[in-house]
């Protein structure tokens, strides 16, 4: 195995060599392209403008959730509450508009605040309360879902027009896709270019070394969970905007899709590794598979089986690749 390490240590070549390096470092992207080609050959319905926009809309909620989750996973945490927080934020926003009769823009901002605060609470529990993030966010998953039900009385509530706008069309382009692109860009900027973003990688890579280097680990942890909450809220607003109403059972189980998207995108649950571009590809892989299987009339029961296998395959291939690269 050491053979590979020595081979890798040799300076990277140009041209073909670096293209191969690029491919091996972007397994999920290769998978997505192969998947797209296969579907293009299998069904004429796949590569149509309408279907692709449809894929984009379907991907938007999962991808935005997963963007937020990427911060947490890079910092070696996990956030199980994103689906519930998305629902709570959407419901809170709708409640502010429909029940409290406040202006729509307040409902929009209020929804985002609710998500951010929920995330920050999880972050406090993890950093100062020293709860494992799995436990803290498992609790938040339950609390947020419960509050959603309490707030709604179990019934859907109509959303503000400002929120519904997020689910509408902007000319020929669906708003969810616009939001997806903006959210992804902002997330990537935060992770790659800000001090806080680099701190996330350091904390995820080695918390103790980060602390001893003067990195404010607790603040970093609170920030990643707050960001995760913010992006969850945005995803929740997107979802409710598309339906023009906040549903009490919205986004149930979405946290699992989001986690899947992040890990298919190449992030490590051990922390310190992960990219927003990878997460986007991961989300697209999930949605394209569902979309393609629908087009091919595969039952939704079998779709779940396929998705499960894809997750195992993607992460398995990735960890195998990393192992051979290390030794």
């Amino acid at each position: 195995m050491n053979k590979v390490a020595e081979a890798v240590a040799v300076p990277k070549g140009r041209g073909r060599g670096s293209f191969m390096t690029f491919l091996s470092g972007n397994g999920a992207l290769v998978g997505l392209v192969v998947l797209g080609l296969a579907l293009f050959i299998a069904t004429p319905d796949f590569l149509t403008g309408r279907n692709l926009l449809n894929v984009g809309i379907q991907a938007s909620v999962i991808a935005v959730l997963a963007f937020g989750l990427t911060f947490v996973i890079v910092a070696a945490g996990i956030d199980l509450s994103v689906g519930s927080v998305a629902a709570l934020s959407a419901m809170g926003s709708a409640w502010i508009f429909s029940q409290a009769d406040l202006p729509g823009w307040i409902a929009l901002i209020g929804g985002l605040l609710i998500g951010t605060l929920s995330g920050a609470v999880s972050g406090l529990a993890v950093s100062y309360g020293r709860l494992p993030s799995f436990i803290a966010t498992l609790a938040m998953l339950s609390v947020a879902r419960g509050l959603t039900l309490v707030l709604s009385g179990g019934r859907p509530i109509p959303t503000a027009p400002e929120v519904s706008f997020l689910g509408s069309m902007l000319g020929p382009v669906p708003m969810p896709i616009v939001v997806l692109i903006i959210a992804g860009t902002v997330a990537a900027l935060i992770l790659n270019f800000t001090v806080m973003g680099r701190y996330m990688y350091a904390v995820g890579g080695n918390t103790e070394a980060a602390r001893l280097s003067g990195i404010p680990v607790r603040r970093v942890l609170i920030t990643v969970f707050a960001l995760s909450g913010f992006f969850a809220a945005l995803a929740g607003l997107l979802l409710s905007g598309r339906l023009d109403s906040a549903q009490p059972q919205a986004a149930v189980g979405y946290e699992l899709d989001a986690i899947a998207a992040v890990v298919i995108g190449g992030a490590s649950l051990a922390g310190g590794v992960g990219r927003i571009s990878g997460t986007l590809i991961g989300a697209l892989v999930l949605v394209v598979i569902r979309n393609g299987l629908n087009l091919l009339n595969v039952s939704s029961f079998w779709q779940q089986v396929v998705i499960g296998l894809v997750i195992a395959l993607a992460v398995g291939v990735d960890s195998l690749r990393r192992k051979t690269a290390q030794h």
């Binding site: 680099r198 890579g205 990195i215």
Partner: peptide
């Protein structure tokens, strides 16, 4: 265990204390 983020590159590791 305490000094380095082993998975990160040399550049990052040298820079942690001065990033902010």
């Amino acid at each position: 265990v305490q000094g380095l983020v082993l998975g990160a590159d040399v550049n990052e590791n040298i820079g942690y204390a001065t990033l902010a």
